[in-house]
């Protein structure tokens, strides 16, 4: 066996290495989604609680920016690796089949290349809506609760949000169990079930907010 050197460069240049990077960055992004949901759900405890939470985060700029930069790096790594792999995978089959059927994969797993970019588009819109207020005419700095209610009263905004959450649910379902697989841990049945439960809970928690706003439960 000829000796192959270990190290970061050959690691990242390999398909396995890139998938590991996607898994780790995906994991960080997942933890953010989880934390974000925990923050969001405070909306049910009233404006004061939610706005205070926002103020608390902004009172620690080092932490806030640290988190933001980490997330940006993770997003960049996640996307860059996936593009490199996608190109490679596209090139691996120059001529396609006349007929091709899926025999065992989930819809979610086959549509990662679609759900990913759509979620990215949503995140950008989401930032413009709630962080920068650019696309939200009723935006008031610091009044998170009011901003959320104002936006979600528009059916189009709520609709896009719900759609994005459904896609996030699918992306997470495959991504969550796949992350373990890419890093070398395999418990297919347990992980797939766990991933499904977590993905659905996250999506349901987030979707409950626009639904509650539109139903008038949160005003």
């Amino acid at each position: 066996m000829s000796v192959v050197s270990a190290g970061v460069a050959p690691f990242y240049s390999s398909t396995v290495g890139k998938k590991a990077v996607m898994a780790v960055s995906g994991c960080v992004l997942f933890l953010f989604v989880l934390g974000h949901l925990a923050g969001n759900l405070q909306i049910y405890e009233g404006p004061e609680k939610l706005d205070n939470y926002s103020r608390l985060l902004h009172s620690m700029p080092a932490l806030l920016w640290g988190a933001r930069i980490t997330l940006l790096v993770m997003v960049a790594l996640h996307i860059w690796s996936s593009i490199q792999l996608a190109v490679r995978n596209y090139e691996a089959r120059p001529t396609g089949y006349v007929r091709k059927k899926a025999a065992g994969s989930s819809y979610a797993s086959r549509t990662m290349y679609w759900s990913g970019p759509i979620i990215l588009a949503f995140v950008i819109y989401h930032l413009l809506d709630f962080t920068f207020g650019t696309v939200n005419p009723a935006f008031q700095v610091g009044n998170v609760y009011a901003n959320v209610v104002a936006s979600f009263q528009l059916p189009l905004v709520s609709g896009f949000y719900i759609l994005a959450m459904v896609l996030l649910c699918m992306h997470l379902y495959h991504g969550l169990w796949s992350m373990f697989q890419s890093l070398g841990f395999h418990r297919a049945t347990t992980l797939k079930r766990g991933a499904a439960v977590v993905a659905i809970l996250i999506a349901a928690g987030n979707i409950s907010i626009p639904v509650s706003v539109m139903a008038g439960l949160v005003k």
Partner: peptide, 8 residues
């Protein structure tokens, strides 16, 4: 190509 863990 790379593995995307889809199970086909």
């Amino acid at each position: 190509g790379s593995c995307t863990n889809i199970g086909e």
